[in-house]
């Protein structure tokens, strides 16, 4: 064997190590779209709160129900979009959508996310409305950070950004909706664009 063969061996080893632990078919564009949905959702929420006549927001008020509906619509649309774009990208790269790496990615993403979701609901039921924005941002950030071990590096930085925004939103609690729009809207659009240019356009 000559040097070229040894080099090729080392390259194969590295490729297989990466391929078997990381799911790389995440689409940057779906991040951009998810961010756009979140921004639209934040504008709608802002409008609903502005035009609301009640002084107090309670769990039973129609305003609260409308806000939950907006949030669920954003979440649902984002998930569908991410799924469709990921399947498409996986087809192009020849990666299987449902493989060991993507399963690990999903499990490790959803454990912190579901924990955060339940915590947010429990806090809400106890009347800690101010904590809605920080808990959703921080736990989403933790979910990204945790999942980033099994996918593209950029997800790690997105996670850290979300956590910082979540902590800041506790300090500036009057601007909750703005932080939420920044974290789920602008950040997704920014990181999605970076990922799109870095990986998708090859």
């Amino acid at each position: 064997m000559d040097t070229n063969n040894y080099l090729q061996d080392l390259k194969d080893i590295k490729d297989l190590m990466n391929k078997s632990t990381q799911f790389i078919s995440l689409s940057g564009l779906s991040g951009v779209l998810a961010g756009t949905y979140a921004l639209i959702g934040a504008f709608v929420a802002h409008y609903l709160i502005r035009t609301n006549t009640d002084i107090y927001v309670s769990v039973n008020s129609s305003l609260f129900q409308q806000l939950v509906l907006v949030a669920l619509a954003v979440l649902f649309l984002s998930l569908i979009t991410a799924y469709i774009f990921t399947v498409n990208k996986a087809k192009k790269t020849g990666e299987k959508v449902w493989n060991a790496a993507s399963k690990r990615l999903l499990i490790n993403f959803f454990i912190p996310l579901v924990t955060g979701g339940i915590l947010t609901l429990l806090l809400f039921a106890k009347g800690y409305y101010d904590l809605l924005v920080p808990t959703t941002l921080i736990f989403y950030g933790m979910a990204c950070l945790n999942a980033s071990k099994y996918t593209l590096r950029d997800v790690r930085y997105l996670g850290i950004t979300e956590i910082i925004l979540g902590l800041l939103s506790v300090v500036f609690s009057n601007y909750g909706l703005y932080f939420w729009a920044l974290g789920f809207g602008i950040c997704h659009i920014l990181y999605g664009t970076v990922m799109h240019y870095k990986y998708d356009r090859k």
Binding site: D12, M17, S20, A100
Partner: peptide, 24 residues
């Protein structure tokens, strides 16, 4: 190539099943 591949995958994964190895 195949033995090299099997070892590469198992070095960075706690374990891998037959189908996973086959696909990779």
């Amino acid at each position: 190539r195949i033995r090299l591949g099997i070892m590469s995958i198992l070095m960075v994964n706690e374990y891998a099943d037959f189908t996973t190895l086959k696909e990779l």
